[in-house]
Structure formats: structure tokens, C-alpha cells
Computed example of a mutant assay.
Amino acid sequence: MAFGVALTIIVVWGVTGPIFKYSDTWQLVINTGTTIVTFLMVFLIQKSQNKDSKAIQLKLNELIAASRFASNRMVDIEDLSEAELDVLRKFYQKLADMAEADTDIHTSHSIDVAQRLHKHKKSVRMGISAGDTGSQE
């Protein structure tokens, strides 16, 4: 509907060109109008994006809360400072490095238990490679 209204305004403006002899005032009307509409649309789009962002954050928080293995420290991280987010990113980079070194692609860790599970898996592998066939992951 907004597109239709905008198109109608532009067509009317274009048709009135010969009536106003394509004057500077005639051109100024459309320039001013489009500038005002653009200015207002920026705020409208930003409000819509903020609402979408909040909805996504809430959905992610629900997934974190529902997952037994997820770290609850991830809930509401959008309130952290840039430096705190960088620290978390480093933790996740380390977690990714550990997962990359792991041969089992189905293994998943949270920050809180990643190192403990990684050490456990290593010790189990060492036990198996040393001839201990009774222990399993």
C-alpha cells in the first residue's frame, strides 16, 4: 500500500510538471518530500529491526534455557561490554579448536564442561591405546 501511495504521488508530481513549467519550486517539492519520507523511514526500519532483534534474542535465550548442556551464562549477553564479549569469543575459539582436533564430529561441549570432557576423552583414549579395552567414552 505504501508503494502505491508513493507511486501515485510521483505520478501526480510528474503530471503537474508542465503546469508549473518544471520550475525550481516544483522540483523542490519532490526533493523535500522524499527527504522527509526517507528520514522517517530510517526510524521506522530501525524500530522494526530492534523488535526483530529482541525476538531473536528471546528465542535464543529459550533455546539456551531448554538445553541441558548449554551454558546459562549466554542468556542476556547482549548487555555485556565489548571487552567481555571479546573474552567470550576467545573461549568459543578455544572450544572450536578443541572440537576441530576431536575426531568425533557428534561431540558437543559447552564452555563450562568443555575442558573437563576433553580431558576425560583424552584419558579414555590413552587407556584404550594402552590396552585398556574395558573403558569406553
Rank of each mutant, 00 (worst) to 15 (best):
Y22D: 15
W13Y: 13
E62I: 01
D86P: 02
V124I: 14
L117K: 09
M98T: 00
M1P: 15
Q136G: 04
G134V: 01
S108E: 15
G4H: 03
E78V: 10
D52H: 08
H120F: 10
G17P: 04
A65H: 09
S71W: 14
I36G: 04
G14C: 14
S135A: 05
R89V: 05
I64S: 04
N50M: 10
M41K: 02
G127D: 11
Q49M: 12
I111A: 11
I128P: 01
A96Q: 07
G4E: 14
A83N: 14
T133S: 07
D76E: 14
A66G: 08
G127A: 08
I19Q: 06
L60H: 02
Q27F: 15
I45S: 07
K54F: 03
V37H: 07
F39V: 14
F39D: 06
H120V: 10
F43C: 04
K90L: 12
I105Y: 02
I56W: 05
D112A: 12
L95T: 03
K121H: 09
L117D: 15
I105H: 05
V42P: 00
L85D: 03
S71Y: 09
A130D: 09
L40Y: 11
E137F: 12
I9M: 05
T34C: 13
A70V: 02
Y22N: 15
V113E: 13
D112L: 14
E78Y: 15
L88K: 02
N61I: 02
E78C: 06
I105M: 01
D76H: 10
L88S: 01
M126E: 13
A2V: 05
G17F: 07
A99V: 01
S110F: 09
M41S: 12
A55C: 00
M98P: 01
G4T: 12
D97V: 03
N61R: 00
D52A: 04
F69N: 13
S53L: 10
R125W: 01
G14V: 15
Y22E: 15
S71Q: 08
T107C: 06
Q115V: 11
D52F: 05
G17L: 02
D52I: 10
W13H: 15
A55N: 04
R68G: 10
